[in-house]
Design a protein around this nucleic acid. Structure first.
Length: 704
DNA sequence: GCACCTCGAGTTCA
DNA sequence: CTCGAGGTGC
């Protein structure tokens, strides 16, 4: 607690009493709001307050405007008073592109009809609530929400709890001043608040703006205080006294004065003499955006000169002299119109949310995966729900939260389909590996999962996915084909073309791709001689393949990139691997019972053996496995994140491996280096948290 | 038997 | 990128 400035010795006892009273009042208020503490009677509270007030009256030097009783005044309100703004609060027009931004200037220059040179002042657009504060004789007397711009609500009590709103201005100050600014909640505060809410079973706030708004609307100032809000000042709506007008004639000078008076102002704000330089600034800020402790949703550009600003006037609700360049929203709300089911290569049925298309982080999003039924239940998502979506790593849309309070009662719970939506086959909730071999002996598209294997009891019980168990499901066939060509890196053959080839009867399995001729493709609609030739050439050039890529292409259950490499290195030829016993496979490092069983079973299936034979017959050449070179990156584990500019990620991967290093997909304490390219995401944060060495592309290139 | 770390599989938009 | 599950080490 602040030390009291007590001059006379006789005051000492009373000074102590004041201190005691203050802490007691604070404690009682605290207790009053904690359910498991005894409730105080209003009498006790009032009498303490009374005593404190009389002491302060007697000794004015005890008065401390920043003391708690001044921050929290009075009891909870019944409602907020409506107050008319002395000076109207305008809103700000938005632009979303540089083009619109420059048009804004052109329009202004036309209106000004003279060759004025315009200076601009740019500042962050805080994502919070605009409010207006009135100070008279240096004291904060009233704070009002924006409302409709004409009339707002008096939230003085709550605003007094905000530490960055000075209750008294620093001297010298004008007789009267009206300060405008934004009440915000810092990201860290929001996080804690939401964690608490979750513990107490209350719904979390979707963003800091909602949280700040909700907090300011608390009728009880004690609750508002606990929210730890902040305030940034950015505008002076009125200021009395001739000597102060010199601060009012430029927006940049208003900032200066606000800072001098004791307000927090935006530290990133900057003056520009040409609009052309501003897009760069906006870009820079957007890069810093995620690391700022508070949320912003754009950059505001003001015409610095107040006279010019005012002469431009207002269109509708927006003054012409100010514009907000808005960043695309990181989060958005939308309505789930439907939940569809995707069928994967392994037959796994993945629910997919279909939205009302909505713009998030720069693109329009129409759907997002829901992963599985458990996830739908965790979110408590129903068809028709309003949801908050965001982009994971700025790319993949994700449903973050269901706004249950928006429910109308018409929402429908989603039930997993009983039949495969593609083939009508049976659906079972089990791990794919756990059903017994019962499928037909007919020809099968390679890469379709091998169903004839058993898997540990634990997996059977805990697996969450539903599967289409029809081995001939066409969706599974198609996904498997796509997987195959992707492993072979035959880029010309996308999903659509593959499907057409299949529908036209040109191929029945992936091996048929390699016997296609130009004459097969050319007659098809929308294929010419040239495109047909390209495809054939591309396929031919990919007939040579490394053993590990070949294994990957087969689509053996549980065998991905890494495991395929492990197998290839340890068995060196297809023949050796196909003849290996479970025990031999199981001995390999990083391969356990589930994987060895799966690999073993794959090569016991007659159809699979026929298929691999057919591939070799059709001209596939499996390259011998390169021995692992020992290089300078021996024993080092790399994680790549973001976009590299000098080389592709694939190439970087190959480089690292060829020098004896390893690539891992996620950051852990075992990671040696995280190579961070442009726009890297959560992996970088994780690395910082774990204290992993982070290197940029330049450093990385110097290592290899 | 548990706590980690990795891997596999599915995924969006322009 | 995210989620689930396999593998490993304690």
């Amino acid at each position: 607690m602040k030390e009291l400035n007590v001059k006379k010795r006789t005051n000492l006892a009373e000074a102590r009493r004041v201190q005691k009273l203050r802490s007691e009042i604070a404690r009682l208020r605290e207790a009053y709001h904690t359910k498991d503490s005894p409730t105080i009677t209003d009498d006790v509270y009032d009498s303490l307050n009374k005593e404190l007030k009389s002491l302060i009256k007697k000794y004015p030097e005890f008065d401390d405007l920043n003391a708690p009783e001044n921050r929290i005044g009075g009891k909870p309100l019944d409602k907020f008073e409506k107050v008319k703004h002395e000076v109207k609060m305008f809103s700000i027009g938005n632009v979303f592109s540089n083009e619109e931004f420059f048009t804004w200037e052109k329009r202004n220059l036309k209106l000004l009809s003279s060759n004025v040179k315009l200076d601009y002042f740019c500042e962050l657009k805080f994502d919070g609530l605009a409010i207006s504060l009135i100070y008279e004789n240096g004291k904060f007397i009233r704070g009002v929400t924006r409302g409709d711009g004409e009339v707002g609500e008096d939230i003085t009590q709550n605003l007094r709890t905000i530490k960055s709103i000075p209750l008294v201005l620093k001297t010298p100050f004008p007789n009267k001043i009206e300060v405008r600014g934004e009440v915000i909640m810092k990201k860290g505060v929001l996080k804690k608040l939401n964690e608490n809410n979750e513990k107490e079973g209350k719904p979390p706030f979707a963003n800091s703006r909602n949280a700040a708004a909700g907090s300011l609307r608390q009728l009880d100032p004690q609750l508002a205080k606990e929210r730890h809000l902040d305030f940034f000042a950015y505008e002076i709506a009125q200021i009395k006294g001739d000597e102060w007008q010199k601060y009012a004639d430029k927006h940049s000078k208003k900032h200066e004065l606000l800072h001098k008076l004791g307000f927090m102002v935006d530290e990133y704000s900057k003056k520009f003499s040409s609009l052309k330089d501003i897009p760069n600034f906006i870009d820079e800020i957007s890069k810093k955006r995620n690391n700022l402790p508070f949320g912003i949703d754009g950059v505001v550009t003001n015409i610095d000169d107040t006279k010019i600003f005012e002469s431009l006037g207002v269109t509708g609700k927006d003054p012409r002299g100010i514009i907000a360049f808005k960043y695309p929203a990181e989060k958005a709300t939308t309505i789930v119109k439907d939940i569809k089911i995707n069928v994967g290569r392994t037959g796994v049925l993945t629910p997919l949310a279909i939205f009302e298309p909505t713009s998030v982080a720069g693109s329009t999003v129409g759907k997002a995966t829901l992963h599985n039924m458990d996830q739908i239940e965790r979110l408590d998502l129903r068809i028709g729900d309003t949801v908050v979506i965001e982009k994971a790593g700025d790319v993949i849309p994700k449903v973050v939260e269901v706004l249950t309070r928006m429910r109308t009662g018409k929402e429908k719970k989603f039930k997993m389909v009983g039949k495969c939506p593609v083939c009508g086959g049976e659906v079972e909730k089990r791990n794919i590996g756990s059903f017994q071999s019962s499928f037909s002996k007919g020809p099968r598209i390679p890469g379709a999962p091998n169903l004839g294997q058993t898997i540990s009891h634990r997996t059977l019980e805990t697996s969450v996915a539903y599967y289409c168990v029809n081995p001939k499901c066409s969706a599974k066939d198609e996904r498997s084909l796509e997987h195959f060509v992707s492993a072979f890196e035959i880029y010309e053959l996308g999903p659509k073309i593959l499907r057409r080839f299949k529908d036209e009867g040109l191929i029945t399995d992936a091996a048929d791709i390699f016997t296609l001729t130009k004459e097969d493709i050319e007659p098809l609609e929308r294929f010419g001689e040239k495109s047909a030739g390209n495809i054939i050439r591309e396929i031919k050039s990919k007939k040579k393949i490394t053993f590990s890529k070949f294994l990957l292409a087969l689509g053996v259950l549980h065998v991905g990139e890494e495991t395929a490499r492990d197998l290839a290195v340890n068995f060196s030829t297809l023949d050796k691997l196909a003849k290996a016993s479970i025990e031999e496979i199981n001995e390999i490092e990083n391969i356990g019972p589930a994987v060895s069983q799966s690999v073993y079973d794959y090569f016991r299936d007659k159809n699979n053996l026929l298929f691999t034979e057919k591939l070799l017959k059709n001209g596939i050449i499996i390259e011998k496995v390169e021995k692992i070179k020992k290089g300078k990156l021996n024993g080092l584990i790399f994680v790549l994140t973001g976009t590299l500019s000098q080389m592709s990620r694939e190439l970087a991967k190959e480089k690292i491996i060829s020098l004896g290093g390893k690539i891992s997909s996620s950051v852990s304490k075992n990671t040696s280096y995280v190579v961070a390219g442009e726009e890297s995401g959560s992996k970088l944060k994780n690395a910082q948290k774990l204290g992993i060495k982070i290197i940029d592309e330049k450093e990385f290139l110097s290592m290899i």
